[in-house]
């Protein structure tokens, strides 16, 4: 895709340096904005920060956050994954296609993660070995998965989700949603992988400058493929959790998550041109999306304004990140 072009403007070595020694605004702007949004909404509607509403927002945050973590890996290597929502819905359909007993839970979990990983592998192979643009490769996989899902369920999925997943997706531990705990564990594990491991450094180099990556002996293709596999697997996990939250399965569990997850990552400072960004920033982006959607309702604006506000924030946030990269 054309993302490589945007990167031409920013000298690449500098880009990977800024990932480590970032200037104040770019690394903390998102958190400041998040706090400002919370304060303003709270001032207009104090119910916004009531225990029940906060718990509700955190429960909505968890599935999106898990997808965003995976999306971050893919965007870091100059890609993007449009198939995540389709993977989520497929995971939800898989979850109900067993008997609905808790004894099947482990099997369901493995089947879902396997499906997500396989989708990611296909995406990664198309992108690296056939040089298909990530947009198209993942778009095509999205459509194929959707078709297979429709064919398998005859358009009307049915069945029950094991109560274990219902618990995980919708129960709280004295106000703290279980699904948020899952997201935190995932964030810590993949945060260590990305920010503290040799593999993580390879991800940044591969995305920051593929030529350098090749010259220093990094198997850039393998790194890229692994990023797509991580993204697919995490999307499947998020689909399982979301289906436990929704309770009813339809063919479109997770609809909109592909765009929301990309938007959240971009708002959180993950550059579409690759090699720059962090999981903490991406999660802050996801939190802003959830807070803004909630705030629109809490301050009494019509629901339609949710997507208008979302659209405005996308453009404003993205333009704030482009400017410093140009200077």
């Amino acid at each position: 895709m054309t993302m490589a072009k945007a990167n031409q403007a920013a000298p690449v070595p500098r880009a990977s340096l800024t990932a480590r020694a970032p200037d104040f605004v770019r690394s903390y702007g998102i958190f400041i904005f998040l706090i400002a949004a919370i304060v303003v909404t709270f001032a207009i509607s104090p119910a916004f920060l009531s225990g029940a509403n906060v718990s509700n927002m955190l429960m909505q945050l968890a599935p999106l956050g898990i997808v965003v973590i995976g999306q971050t890996f893919v965007v870091l290597v100059r890609g993007l994954d449009l198939s995540v929502a389709s993977v989520m819905a497929t995971a939800a359909v898989i979850a109900t296609s067993f008997g609905g007993q808790n004894s099947d839970a482990a099997l369901i979990f493995l089947a879902c993660i396997g499906m997500g990983a396989a989708t990611g592998l296909a995406n990664g192979l198309l992108v690296t070995k056939r040089n298909v643009s990530p947009f198209l490769a993942t778009l095509a996989m999205m459509i194929v998965l959707q078709g297979l899902r429709f064919a398998a369920t005859q358009g009307a999925p049915s069945g029950n989700i094991p109560s274990l997943f219902r618990q995980l997706g919708s129960a709280t531990l004295s106000g703290m949603p279980y699904n948020l705990l899952v997201m935190i564990v995932v964030a810590i594990l993949f945060g260590i992988l990305l920010h503290r491991s040799a593999f993580g450094r390879r991800v940044y180099i591969t995305g920051g400058n593929p030529v350098t990556a090749r010259l220093v002996g990094i198997a850039a293709d393998r790194v890229t493929i692994l990023c797509y596999v991580i993204c697919g697997s995490l999307a499947a996990l998020a689909g399982l959790i979301l289906s436990g939250f929704v309770g009813v399965v339809d063919n479109f569990v997770g609809r909109g998550f592909e765009l929301d997850s990309i938007v959240a990552a971009v708002m959180g400072g993950v550059a579409l041109s690759g090699g720059r960004g962090s999981i903490a920033g991406a999660l802050a982006g996801a939190t802003i999306l959830v807070v803004l959607s909630n705030a629109v309702v809490m301050v009494g604006m019509p629901v339609q304004l949710q997507i208008i506000v979302k659209g405005l924030v996308i453009i404003i946030a993205a333009s704030l990140y482009v400017r410093p990269a140009r200077a």
């Binding site: 054309t2 993302m3 945007a6 403007a9 947009f135 765009l259 990309i262 938007v263 971009v266 579409l272 659209g311 405005l312 996308i314 453009i315 993205a318 333009s319 482009v322 400017r323 140009r326």
Partner: peptide, 13 residues
């Protein structure tokens, strides 16, 4: 702004 068209048109959409 120099923002990628993908993001801009996603937003205006």
């Amino acid at each position: 702004t120099g923002v990628h068209p993908l993001i801009v048109t996603l937003g205006t959409g």
